[in-house]
């Protein structure tokens, strides 16, 4: 018997061959909590990895969503972020879960996703270096940890903190899309460009919302000589 890492209820996993030989992995959550997660699967946007099954058809063009087309059409952002892949849809339950993790400070919640993260992203992270999206010094102190760093830890690979934030700014979640997109200055800078040069980089963050945080981070990495930059997030 195990205890759910989110609600603390006890549960036991259904037994099956797939589970036993490691073909099927699931988060360390009880059936109720797991049932409230929606995995991203089936048809997705080629770039941002959003699930097309829950996305209005009219905002889609071929294998790309309008948001990504808008990004790609803007010359300064073309090809900056190669692709993003996420595990779950950012639904109400995911919002609650991330709030518990970030704002209440329950770092342990992340561990529920370790088995899924490592099996799901083994392939795409093989020859890349993992870089978590950093927090500002001040926010990091306030929270005690960086959730992106904890998530990156679940990929069972060396994690390199090659980015840092220049200034302490307002929380992204308190801004509208317009505000986020209109930010002129890039909040990130590369700590060690030598390590980045000609490398394939995978950024790790908790949520992909508008994609502007990840694209800003990708941009400074490309400018520092990275070969290509993609990203992995828990929720989309």
């Amino acid at each position: 018997m195990s205890y759910c890492l989110y609600c603390h209820e006890s549960y036991s996993k259904a037994w099956s061959w797939e589970v036993l030989i490691g073909l099927e992995v699931s988060p360390l959550l009880c059936q109720d909590c797991e049932g409230r997660l929606v995995s991203v699967k089936g048809e997705i946007c080629r770039i941002c990895g959003r699930d097309f099954s829950i996305f209005p058809e009219q905002y889609r063009q071929g294998d790309c969503c309008f948001d990504c087309i808008r990004w790609e059409e803007n010359e300064s952002w073309t090809g900056i972020l190669q692709q993003n892949r996420s595990l779950y849809v950012y639904n109400d339950f995911m919002k609650e879960l991330i709030a518990k993790l970030k704002y209440r400070g329950d770092a342990e919640v992340v561990k529920a996703f370790y088995p899924v993260l490592s099996s799901e992203f083994k392939k795409i992270s093989r020859d890349a270096i993992l870089v978590p999206i950093p927090l500002s010094e001040e926010r990091h102190y306030e929270r005690g940890f960086n959730q992106a760093e904890l998530l990156a830890g679940g990929l069972k690979k060396q994690v390199e903190s090659l980015l840092k934030r220049k200034i302490h700014e307002e929380k992204q979640s308190k801004k509208t899309r317009e505000e986020r997109l209109s930010q002129k200055e890039n909040p990130f800078e590369v700590v060690d460009s030598v390590k980045v040069k000609d490398q394939k980089v995978i950024l790790v963050d908790d949520v992909y919302t508008t994609g502007s945080t990840l694209r800003c981070a990708a941009k400074v990495l490309i400018e520092a000589g990275a070969k290509e930059v993609s990203s992995i997030t828990l929720a989309r």
Binding site: Y3, H8, E108, H140, Y141, R143, G144, F145
Partner: peptide, 11 residues
């Protein structure tokens, strides 16, 4: 004990 956890604390 299962309701205690550890983390790498920045503070």
């Amino acid at each position: 004990s299962r309701l205690f956890a550890m983390f790498s604390c920045f503070c």
